[in-house]
C-alpha cells in the first residue's frame, strides 16, 4: 500500500507543481506533516543536497525522499510518479502546440497560479527559516548570505559550499 501511496503522492506533485523545482518544497512539507515519512529537519538537508547535486532539483528531491522512505526502489517509484504527468501532458501538448500557447484560458489560469506558487515557496522558506534562524547571530549570517546572493549572483552551489565552510569555521 505504501508503494502505491508514494507513487500517487508524487504523481500529484508532478501534476500540480507549476513553476519549477522549488515549488515541490511546499508539497514535501505537506507530505511530512501528513505521513511523518521524514522530519522537516531532514527535508532541509534533502533540499541542500538536491541543490548541490547534478540533475534537476525536483527530480533529486523526489529520488531522495523516496529513498529515505523505502530504499532504492522507493527512490525510483517516487521519481517515476513525479515525471509521469509531465511526460503524458507534454506529449499531448506537443500535438496541439500552437493552440495551447495562444490560448487565453491558459494565460488567465497562470495569472493567479504564479503568485500563489511564489507565495507557497515563501511559506516554505519561512517554515525553514524558523528552524534555523534561531539566534540574532544566525539571522545576521542569513542576511549577509542573502545580500551576497542577491548582489553577486553566483551559482547556488557556491553559496551552499560557503555555508558549509562558514558553519565549520564558526562552529554553528
Amino acid at each position: 500500500m505504501i508503494w502505491l501511496l508514494l507513487f500517487f503522492e508524487f504523481f500529484k506533485i508532478g501534476l500540480f507543481a507549476l513553476g519549477g523545482g522549488l515549488v515541490t518544497i511546499p508539497f514535501l512539507f505537506d507530505l511530512s506533516a501528513k505521513y511523518g515519512w521524514f522530519s522537516s529537519q531532514e527535508l532541509f538537508d534533502m533540499i541542500a543536497i538536491s541543490e548541490s547535486s547534478p540533475g534537476p532539483i525536483g527530480v533529486n528531491m523526489a529520488t531522495y525522499v523516496g529513498f529515505k522512505i523505502l530504499g532504492i526502489w522507493g527512490g525510483i517509484v517516487a521519481t517515476a510518479g513525479l515525471i509521469l504527468p509531465s511526460v503524458i501532458i507534454v506529449i499531448i501538448v506537443a500535438k496541439v502546440l500552437e493552440k495551447y500557447r495562444q490560448s487565453n484560458t491558459f494565460a488567465n489560469l497562470m495569472y493567479s497560479i504564479h503568485p500563489a506558487a511564489i507565495a507557497m515557496i515563501l511559506y516554505a522558506g519561512i517554515e525553514l527559516g524558523k528552524m534555523v534562524l534561531i539566534s540574532p547571530m544566525l539571522i545576521g549570517i542569513g542576511i549577509i548570505f542573502w545580500g551576497a546572493i542577491h548582489f553577486i549572483k553566483l551559482h547556488p552551489i557556491v553559496y551552499i559550499v560557503l555555508g558549509g565552510i562558514v558553519g565549520v569555521v564558526l562552529k554553528l
Binding site: 518544497i25 534555523v132 542569513g142 555555508g163 564558526l170
Partner: peptide
C-alpha cells in the same frame, strides 16, 4: 557544516 548550509538554503529561497 549543515547548520551553515541550512542558512544558505533559506537565503537562496
Amino acid at each position: 557544516a549543515f547548520t551553515g548550509i541550512r542558512i544558505a538554503v533559506v537565503a537562496l529561497i
